[in-house]
């Protein structure tokens, strides 16, 4: 077939570009189901909130519940632990944001912004580095230098408000959305 070059776009040029565009958009649309099928199914997303009975938690103790496949830490802090957490200056925190789902995104990471009641610390028990579960520190078995948690995988240390203090983790332990149904009953999620 003979081809002629013309300075003006021809009908053939238009058809060429239009066909190519339709093919590209069609390919992208066809690819999306293959990508999106990897996302959580509606059954997984429907995982409802849990309720937790905290009446048996002793002072200074931590209990672990399971929430959305992750461990959920509920720690009943001693007055000393609360005082330690409150004494920390914001300038000493690697992550200055509260990471509290119950507060605005930019709330500062003061101890008060990390809980609803000072005595009860409720946290997602997943290290913000690479997802291991940190070990709780107790006076009998101290973990790390800050009295909170130590992640054994890569050495991240958290204080008694669950804030990152040392190590590779970039963020404070997350505070999930939760509320007190009664003084001894929590609703998480």
């Amino acid at each position: 077939m003979a081809t002629t070059t013309s300075p003006e776009p021809t009908r053939r040029d238009f058809l060429y570009i239009a066909t190519g565009t339709v093919a590209a958009v069609g390919a992208a649309l066809a690819a999306w189901p293959f990508i999106d099928q990897m996302n959580p199914t509606s059954a997984v997303l429907a995982l409802a909130s849990i309720e937790a009975d905290i009446s048996q938690v002793a002072l200074g103790q931590q209990v672990v519940f399971s929430w959305r496949g992750h461990p959920l830490f509920v720690r009943r802090r001693t007055p000393k632990e609360i005082a330690e957490a409150r004494a920390v200056s914001l300038a000493d925190l690697p992550d200055p944001v509260a990471r509290n789902a119950n507060l605005p995104d930019d709330a500062p990471a003061t101890d008060a912004n990390r809980e609803i009641k000072p005595e009860w610390l409720v946290l997602v028990g997943v290290c913000t580095h690479l997802g291991c579960i940190p070990t709780v520190s107790t006076p009998q078995s101290p973990q790390g230098d800050y009295g909170g948690w130590l992640c054994h995988c890569h050495g991240s240390q958290y204080d008694t408000a669950g804030r990152i203090r040392k190590g590779p983790a970039p963020q404070n332990l997350a505070v999930p959305p939760y509320s007190f149904l009664s003084p001894t009953r929590l609703k998480i999620g």
């Binding site: 990897m38 996302n39 959580p40 199914t41 997984v44 959305r68 496949g69 992750h70 997943v126 997802g131």
Partner: peptide
Amino acid sequence: TWLWGGFAV
């Protein structure tokens, strides 16, 4: 989340 197909492995 996309890799896991959930909130965790």
